[in-house]
Design a binder for these strands. Structure first.
Length: 796
DNA sequence: GCGGACTGCTTACCT
DNA sequence: ACAGGTAAGCAGTCCGCG
């Protein structure tokens, strides 16, 4: 009997393969189970080809809020579900086969189990009787006992221990001609394969008869035969429970699979799908998938990197880069090749191990919240995680999972401010342009999840069928929300929000040991990712539980709350300088006025209004979503300014930062004279020495966001990319400079100094600097003995 | 034939 | 393949111009 954590459930041979990890063994325990694919329908499918049984069954319909009779249909092949769904209205056809097994049998990924044998698997109940409900806010909750139960359920899952998982990163190098060989044909030799784990640092390389290189970083093994090299490599890969790669889904794994076929290797640890390959038994996590996941990128990794390649991600997250080399990777010395290859494996591994295995632990927490296999969590997007979380709840509670077409046919009540958008979103307040000293920023903690909770918002509670709920109006809309039953989204997201804001954040604050701190920090981060996406997915057309009145209701309540709060603040004689969605910037407020505003939000809306940060001074440019300020701790906060944007040329970014540094030094008005001197001499220097700026410092780095064919007007990045050999591709970043001659852009690689359009660049410099200098205009203008500064010439 | 005013498209940002 | 709102730059069009 082994204490193991469930990591994955996989479809194999028309059955289920459960993968448990035992830290004690350092291995996976695999359990095969039979499972019948099934769906529900009001139609009779008894005679349908491939159907094994069709039985009447009573299910709860949460949209209509009543029981209903339907049929449970089991089939002999999961593929049939998608086939039938094309021409029939059926329920639960989009529940993935492997997920369905988990839901039906109440297995939770990331939970601990005693695995005795393939028959006897017992969940380890971690009793959480000590869970303290007193800090949780139950105001306005429709069904308190259900809500409390859900809080305990979540805490029970989230508090469980997080194990260190033994894992191996590997990476291959292959011979290349002009472009990367097709992994589906694998025509070229594999020249090196590297491994990195806690207990293994090794590279296999093909011998070229060169002098052998030695290093103490890793072991190098030279091979005469590529076949033998791969056979040995496969043994290593198969000996680890979890295998990591960087983009191995699309390259390393299918390449090795097909290369093994080409070389006549009989024992292949991989299995091919359409274009990807997967491991037969181990768990493969593609680290690229984790770092290119939009939600994780923004909310867990705070947008620290823009490009998603190994080099860029490792640089941002670890402060390390790939090994550098000159010329072609095929022709570098074999020792350097080994080092390069090894370093990729090492970086890939370290991306999962930094901060005490932060990334692995986050993945496990996501598995627990979404009840989804770790290999799916690391590959699928947030909408799939949330879908899984909701589906699990429905199935656990004997509810038929609703489909969008069952929701009431309700028109949207609002119109978006932006063309082509479906409904109105948040409000952004006008800014009071200028420098402001002592500014307090207050914000509503998790505004949208709070609204979902307090207003009982869910796809089955907005415009519910009860006559008596219709008076429970949502502001700015014709919608109402249910007063009789708690909504599923409201219950699940509401309880997660309470746990984050009123439980784990408090535990984090009071944590005594470093371990506790890390644990609670991780849990709050994981919750943040789910909470932040919870509103958006419901307004996303492809989400199976898409229902616009819900998304629209959430933003409508949000507008109501912030606008009423601003009104109240103004009545208290507070000066509001700016605000966006859930925040208000207040100029030099009294402590007790802040307190009464907090109480107002609490009493009227049952929502937490908090002091988020205080600025010693704040410089508002007058443009919305665009400002900088110095916080109490002396730290500089920059939002939206062009100088910060990822596509501005590096040289301009540097200049922008230098000037900002100068501005930040200002303490008293007299300092302006000197600061102005320094700044203008900096700018003048740039103007006079413009020709000396290296080209790459002037390059813009812009992503091609769409399929090149789909553009209505070609953006400059595409025009530049078209000048390069090879087809421009969606998702590709293009570095280009602005030129004075047609077509006014050139890719960096082809550009020469004489092409550069100096005027354009100086213009660009001006707009970027304007955003920081202009709000301070009065003071600088005053010191200059002039009025408005409009151009740099004036400024000098 | 040309340039300014305007609209719409595109990217990167904010919440 | 979560949402809408905003700034900025560019592509393209319209309009007036004896």
């Amino acid at each position: 009997m082994y204490k193991s954590i469930l990591l994955s459930s996989m479809y194999i041979n028309r059955g289920i393969l459960l993968k448990f990890y035992s830290p004690e063994l350092g291995k996976l325990i695999l359990v095969h189970r039979q499972h019948k694919a099934h769906f529900y329908s009001d139609e009779d499918f008894a005679e349908y080809q491939g159907v094994e049984s069709c039985q009447p069954i009573e299910m709860f319909d949460c949209v209509k809020d009543k029981k209903r009779l339907t049929n449970l249909i089991t089939v002999n092949n999961p593929v049939l579900l998608t086939e039938i769904a094309e021409s029939h209205k059926i329920y639960e056809s989009d529940v993935k086969y492997n997920q369905s097994y988990l839901y039906d049998n109440n297995f939770i990924v990331g939970n601990w189990y005693y695995v005795y044998d393939s028959k006897k698997i017992v969940p380890i109940e971690s009793r959480n009787d000590s869970f303290d409900l007193s800090s949780i806010d139950l105001d306005s909750v429709v069904d308190v006992s259900n809500f409390e139960q859900q809080l305990k359920t979540w805490a029970n899952v989230l508090d469980q221990e997080l194990p260190e998982i033994k894992r191996l990163a590997f990476d291959i190098e292959v011979e290349t001609s002009d472009k990367l060989p097709d992994p589906l044909n694998a025509p070229n030799r594999v020249t090196a394969i590297s491994f990195h784990s806690n207990d293994l640092k090794k590279v296999f390389v093909l011998d070229r008869g060169e002098t052998k290189a030695y290093t103490d970083q890793f072991d190098t093994v030279y091979y005469e035969s590529e076949k033998k090299m791969l056979e040995d490599a496969f043994k290593i890969i198969e000996s680890y429970p979890v295998v990591l790669t960087y983009n191995g889904d699309m390259f390393d794994m299918p390449y090795l699979y097909n290369r093994a076929l080409n070389l006549g290797i009989t024992h292949n640890p991989f299995r091919m799908m359409k274009t990807k390959a997967t491991l037969n038994y181990g768990i493969h996590i593609d680290v690229y998938g984790i770092f290119s996941n939009r939600s994780l990128k923004i909310y867990a990794f705070n947008g620290k990197y823009v490009e998603e390649g190994l080099n860029s991600v490792a640089k941002a997250m670890l402060g390390e880069e790939k090994t550098k080399y000159e010329g072609n990777l095929n022709s570098i010395p074999v020792g350097l090749l080994a080092e390069y290859c090894y370093n990729d494996s090492r970086l890939t591994y370290n991306l999962t191990s930094f901060n005490n295995n932060l990334v692995m632990n986050l993945l496990l927490l996501m598995c627990r919240i979404g009840n989804m296999s770790i290999d799916d969590i690391s590959r699928l997007s947030i909408s799939n995680w949330i879908k899984s979380m909701l589906y699990f709840y429905h199935i656990q509670n004997g509810q038929l999972i609703p489909i969008s077409s069952d929701f009431p046919k309700v028109e949207t009540s609002t119109t978006a401010l932006i063309k082509d958008k479906k409904y109105q979103g948040a409000v952004v307040l006008d800014q009071e342009k200028g420098i402001h000293f002592n500014v307090v920023v207050m914000d509503f903690a998790s505004l949208y999840p709070s609204i979902i909770k307090t207003r009982n918002i869910s796809y089955e509670t907005i415009c519910c069928p009860h006559e008596e709920c219709k008076s429970n109006k949502i502001p700015y809309t014709n919608h109402w929300s249910c007063t009789k039953k708690i909504g599923i989204v409201s219950l699940l997201i509401g309880s997660l929000k309470e746990l984050r804001v009123n439980h784990y954040k408090k535990l984090l604050k009071s944590a005594k040991t470093e371990e506790e701190k890390e644990k609670y920090d991780m849990i709050t981060q994981a919750l943040k990712v789910f909470l932040n996406a919870s509103y958006g997915v419901i307004g996303f057309e492809s989400f199976p539980l898409y229902f616009l009145p819900v998304a629209e209701s959430i933003t409508a309540v949000g507008r109501d709350i912030i606008l009423e709060t601003v009104k109240t603040a103004k009545n208290m004689d507070l000066k509001i300088l700016a605000g966006d969605t859930d925040s208000i910037f207040i100029h030099n407020p009294d402590k007790d006025k802040i307190q009464s505003l907090i109480e107002y939000a609490r009493n009227i809306y049952a929502i937490d209004l908090e002091v988020d940060k205080t600025y010693r001074y704040l410089v508002l440019s007058g443009r919305k979503k665009n400002y900088f300020g110095v916080k109490e701790n002396g730290k500089l906060d920059i939002k939206g300014l062009s100088g910060k944007k990822s596509n501005t040329p590096p040289y301009l970014k540097k200049l922008f930062n230098e000037i900002l540094d100068e501005l930040v030094k200002i303490n008293v008005v007299e300092d302006f004279v000197e600061t102005k001197q320094t700044i203008s001499s900096k700018i003048k220097y740039v103007y006079d020495h413009f020709e000396e700026i290296p080209l790459e410092q002037l390059a813009l780095n812009v992503m091609i966001n769409k399929e090149p064919k789909e553009y209505k007007t070609k953006p400059q990045c595409l025009i530049a990319a078209e000048q390069l050999p090879g087809k421009p591709e969606k998702g590709q970043f293009v570095q280009y400079v602005k030129t004075w001659n047609e077509p006014h852009v050139k890719p960096l690689q082809l550009a020469l100094s004489k092409d550069i359009d100096k005027t354009k660049y100086i213009e660009g410099f001006e707009t970027v600097l304007e955003q920081v200098v202009e709000p301070m205009e009065i003071d600088i203008g005053f010191l200059l003995g002039r009025g408005k500064i409009t151009t740099m010439d004036n400024f000098w």
